[in-house]
Amino acid sequence: MSKDKKKSEFISHGIAAQNRKARHDYTILSTIEAGIVLRGVEVKSLRLGRAQLNEAWAGERDGELFLFNLYIPEYQSGVLSRFDVRGLRKLLIKRKERNQIFAAISRDRRTVVPLDVFFNDRGLAKVTLGIAEGKQKADKRHAAAERDWKRDKARLLRNK
């Protein structure tokens, strides 16, 4: 197999990491797309698709929006520069959207949860933030029962 036909291990565009549990634990009220400030080796590691968003959250620090606890493992292919694998990462967002998020956090007691990290068509790293409200245990059970009923209903209609 020649070099140009060899499958690339990097993600050039598409989803690099997802937080699947966020939609289970929270009711997502609205979503906002934000840029994320990364170093070169962080981008290379993110392109390998090994990042984890499970425990990540977004919040305010000094009037700026940051992503806390996003895990990006170190890139192992001969690069000497090291970085904090769970460090702060600044989010790039328009002022109007930033003010909307800050108001939701402080006034409405909402949570800002990262839903996924992806590369857009231009190859830039972006994160989808969800302004969310926490679910109670009963809400989670109701959502699971509703999902099961929809699946069973579709199965019954398909078999008729």
Rank of each mutant, 00 (worst) to 15 (best):
S45D: 12
K5D: 15
G87I: 00
K21M: 04
R50Q: 12
G87M: 00
L92Q: 04
G35P: 13
Q76K: 07
L88A: 06
D62K: 14
V43I: 15
R86P: 02
S77R: 06
I11P: 13
L46G: 10
T31G: 03
K5L: 14
R20G: 10
H24C: 02
V79A: 08
L46F: 04
K6H: 08
L53S: 12
S30K: 14
R82V: 14
R50E: 09
G49S: 05
F10A: 07
F68Y: 15
K6A: 10
G78Q: 08
N54C: 02
D25M: 09
F66H: 15
E74S: 05
R20C: 01
E33L: 04
F10R: 10
E55T: 12
N19G: 06
R89Q: 05
Q76H: 10
I36G: 00
G14P: 07
N54R: 14
E64T: 05
L29K: 06
K7H: 13
G40T: 00
W57C: 05
T27C: 15
E74F: 05
G87P: 03
L80T: 07
Q18Y: 02
I36C: 00
W57I: 01
I72Q: 08
A17R: 11
K21Y: 09
R39M: 12
E74K: 11
L88Q: 14
E42L: 04
T31A: 00
D84G: 01
H24G: 03
A58D: 09
K6D: 13
D4V: 14
I93G: 00
G35D: 14
N19Q: 13
G78W: 03
L91A: 10
K44Q: 13
I32A: 12
V85W: 01
K5G: 02
F66A: 02
S30T: 15
K5A: 12
K94N: 10
L38Y: 00
P73S: 06
E64R: 10
K21I: 05
L67P: 11
L46V: 06
R82E: 10
R20P: 10
H13S: 14
S8F: 07
E55I: 11
D84V: 10
I93H: 00
S45F: 03
S81P: 01
I32E: 09
L53V: 13
K44T: 14
G87F: 00
S45V: 04
A16N: 01
F68N: 03
H24I: 12
F68K: 01
S8G: 05
R82I: 13
F10E: 15
W57R: 06
I72C: 06
Y26H: 11
R20L: 03
I32F: 06
K21C: 01
S8R: 04
S45M: 09
A58T: 08
Y75T: 11
S81R: 14
A22L: 08
R89V: 00
A17T: 13
E42F: 10
K5E: 15
R86D: 02
K44C: 11
D84F: 02
I28M: 12
H13V: 01
T31C: 08
G35K: 04
A22S: 15
K21W: 07
N54K: 12
